[in-house]
Simulated scan of single mutants.
Amino acid sequence: MKGIIGFFSDLQPYILMGFVIIIIILIITLLVVLKSINRLETRYRKLTRGINNENLEKIIMSYLDNIDKVKEDTEKIKNQQQEINNNLKQCIQKVSILRYKAFEDIGSDLSFSIVLLDNSNDGVVLTGIYGRSDSTVYAKPIDKGISRYDLSEEEEEVLYNAIKKQ
């Protein structure tokens, strides 16, 4: 027994150094674990902000319900946007105007032709002819960029200018 005690008393400084190294390693491990727990707690608080004493399952279900509602709202908005785009194609998108002298004896460019077309080149040509004694305004329908009625040079020019607009 004295041999064993003597053997350990000779190794006592080394054993003490070993324990000190193990304690230092344990302290470092403890600090790393505490830091990790702190980060985890911060994430948990961020996840559960605004919710009092509810379990995690309720919180996650609440978030999933919110996501489903946002998906529904997004789908509604998408459908409304598509409907607006379809309606917009039928609105006037191409306009062209030309002023000119219908008669040589009239001083100014008081006559005009206006073309109003939608995306499909459907619309109308409005023409106003100004004369000394009277003034006339008439309209000619346009279907797919073509009129059923004969067009004057000015009306053809203004129709061509409107069609080539994008």
Rank of each mutant, 00 (worst) to 15 (best):
R39K: 15
L110W: 02
M17H: 06
R49D: 14
E72L: 12
S133H: 14
V95C: 05
I163P: 00
I146F: 15
I59D: 02
L116A: 09
L64N: 07
M61L: 10
I67Y: 10
E54F: 12
K35D: 11
V20M: 05
G50C: 05
I59N: 05
F8P: 00
V95W: 08
Y160M: 03
D68P: 00
V32I: 15
S147L: 08
K69D: 14
N66D: 15
E154H: 01
N79C: 05
I67Q: 02
E155C: 00
D134M: 08
N86T: 14
R43V: 11
L30D: 05
T48G: 09
S9G: 04
I146G: 01
C91R: 09
N87G: 06
I92T: 10
N121R: 00
D143Y: 15
G128C: 13
S111R: 07
I25T: 07
T42N: 10
V95P: 04
F103D: 04
I114Q: 06
V95H: 01
L30S: 13
Y149I: 10
I4C: 03
I142P: 00
I4E: 12
I163W: 03
V124Q: 00
N119F: 03
N66L: 04
N38E: 15
K71F: 11
N85I: 12
R132E: 12
L34K: 05
I24E: 07
V115E: 02
N121C: 08
G18R: 13
V70Y: 14
D109W: 05
K2M: 09
I59Q: 03
I25M: 00
K2T: 10
S96E: 14
V32T: 13
L56V: 11
E154R: 09
R45V: 07
I51W: 06
I77L: 09
K78Q: 10
S152C: 03
I97N: 07
L47W: 08
G128M: 05
V158F: 10
N38D: 15
G128D: 02
S135T: 15
K164G: 00
K58C: 03
N87Q: 06
D105S: 04
V115F: 05
E155W: 14
Y14T: 12
D122N: 15
I37E: 05
I59S: 06
T136E: 15
L30N: 09
Q93W: 01
G145K: 04
K69C: 01
F7T: 08
E75C: 01
E41R: 14
M17A: 14
L88S: 08
D68S: 14
L40Q: 13
V124P: 04
E57G: 03
D105M: 04
S120R: 07
L117D: 02
V33K: 13
I15N: 01
T29C: 06
